[in-house]
Nucleic acid binder design. Sequence first.
DNA 1: TCCATAAGGTTAGTGACTAACATGTTAGTC
DNA 2: GACTAACATGTTAGTCACTAACCTTATGGA
Lengths: 201, 201
Amino acid sequence: MTAAEGPADWRARKKAATRKTIQEQAIRLFLEKGFDATTVEEIAAAAGVSHMTFFRHFRTKEEVAAGDDYDPMIGELVASRPAAEPVVEKIRQAFGGGLAQVYAADREALLARYRLILETPALRARLWENQNQTQRHVVEALTKAAGGPPDDLRLEVVVGACLTAAATAIRVWAENPEGTELPELIDRAFAVLREEFTPGG
Amino acid sequence: MTAAEGPADWRARKKAATRKTIQEQAIRLFLEKGFDATTVEEIAAAAGVSHMTFFRHFRTKEEVAAGDDYDPMIGELVASRPAAEPVVEKIRQAFGGGLAQVYAADREALLARYRLILETPALRARLWENQNQTQRHVVEALTKAAGGPPDDLRLEVVVGACLTAAATAIRVWAENPEGTELPELIDRAFAVLREEFTPGG
DNA sequence: TCCATAAGGTTAGTGACTAACATGTTAGTC
DNA sequence: GACTAACATGTTAGTCACTAACCTTATGGA
């Protein structure tokens, strides 16, 4: 209770704390016993709340493990790149840069989370839904950054290919984290796009 | 009961007939009332079976609407292309060719099914899972077709980009079927890949 | 003091999906 | 022609994700 506190500020903090506790307990249990073998009831109990509170914070059991917290950020990063830069390069820089930070700060957590997702069908499905949503955000950001809406199909295909490349790099990394490091893999994945789709081919 | 009938042949036929009935009734109800508003119990009743029979034929409610019947075929089509052909061209030809047939025979059904899938979150997620599975099949087929396992990341990225391009074309088509026809869109999507990822930028 | 608000709890559902067990029908065997 | 194994299907009784309606509690302001 120092001084500068908004009206209902501590409420928000408490709510965020509850949310964080739920998420931590959920991830812990998922890693310990597997996603399917963990019930929402257990997660709620471990977090000291009722199962309704769980669902007030997360719409589904999948969302707590594979929710997408970074999505709006990616859109901004892409939009804030120099206008003259080619689309592929914008995405590559935005994505690579954003991920490098998470990677440096939290490599082990990122790895554990992705392995969990990749080995759980329900979470994999959810991850793709996220990727598609990211794609929509990026396409929207790029459309706004350019003048009029240029070529919908073109933009969607390019962004889709880039995100697929990035997702592939992450997948390959998670499957063999002892091998090449993630940033390097992302570089390589984008290099493949450039090399493979040349007319001289 | 003519003559040439395998031992347990008519069993298989009856089973296939039941499966087909369930699927037809399911799709009909999904299109009439929406996916979420249709219960498995209703589908089973409409098909004249119990809900257990439904689950013996389809593992989940999603599978009956967004199951992937063509997956093994794609693998074979890709593998049977001339070895010298670039990977992108193999996939483009295999995919384009296979889809053109379905398209010519069943355009309306294809459209209805895709619209249903695209407007239902649960089915969209399932569709992505399918695409990933197709990707695995194609990568496997190509790895086998080549000699040793060349570059895993390279192949995964290329195949992923191609399938994403095809999926984007289908999506754009389903969202606006009055516009450009699907085969044309697929051509364009692949053209975008070629044009956009050239080193010259 | 009293009331509005917002986080959380309780309870009673619905519906997808599973496991265990029962039934009828057909294919081969004696 | 009865006998049995195999198999598609049915019945029943669950578990668990998720929802809706309603109640409780605690804070912050009037």
